[in-house]
């Protein structure tokens, strides 16, 4: 049941990415190009997403279990760390270079796009590299 529920959420999330234009790297770069012909569309994607999720997340924060009886995995960390900032900066550079972040890259992979395959393979390699580095530290 929780697998089916997650599949449904992923499908709707993906439809939203496609409809919004987030799954079009050229459009994402158009948003990031403040000094050129700026396409502000993606600011509206964030506004719509945050607006729709605001009250449901309040509700979730008050619950002990999810509708399907799962524990609520809400992040409890509050510290602003160098790794949070440095990691985000690295991510932002990659995002700008390709016009792709993880969700849209997976959606594009579903259209059998060659560039998406290159990007996702490299992204998985990056995640595996992180895992190995963490493993060594632990």
């Amino acid at each position: 049941m929780k697998t089916l529920s997650a599949l449904l959420a992923g499908l709707v999330f993906g439809l939203g990415l496609i409809l919004s234009g987030m799954a079009n790297p050229a459009k994402v770069q158009g948003f990031l190009d403040l000094a050129g012909a700026w396409d502000p569309s993606l600011a509206l994607v964030m506004a719509g997403a945050i607006g729709a999720a605001f009250l449901p997340f309040r509700l979730a924060g008050q619950r002990k279990k999810s509708w399907l009886g799962e524990p609520l995995h809400l992040p409890g960390t509050r510290e602003i760390t160098p790794r949070l900032v440095l990691g985000s900066l690295l991510f932002g550079i990659g995002w700008g270079l390709a016009g792709l972040c993880p969700g849209p890259a997976l959606v594009l992979l579903g259209t059998l796009s060659g560039p998406a395959l290159v990007f996702v393979s490299a992204m998985l390699a990056g995640m595996e590299l992180f895992r190995l580095l963490q493993h060594k530290r632990a």
Binding site: A6, A52, S66, H73
Partner: peptide, 25 residues
């Protein structure tokens, strides 16, 4: 503006569903 706002709302609803039903971000 309209397609991006509507797509954003779908994204927000999907995220809401996942946290309320599955307890996941």
């Amino acid at each position: 503006p309209l397609a991006s706002l509507a797509g954003g709302v779908l994204i927000g609803l999907a995220a809401s569903w996942l946290v309320l039903a599955n307890g996941r971000i």
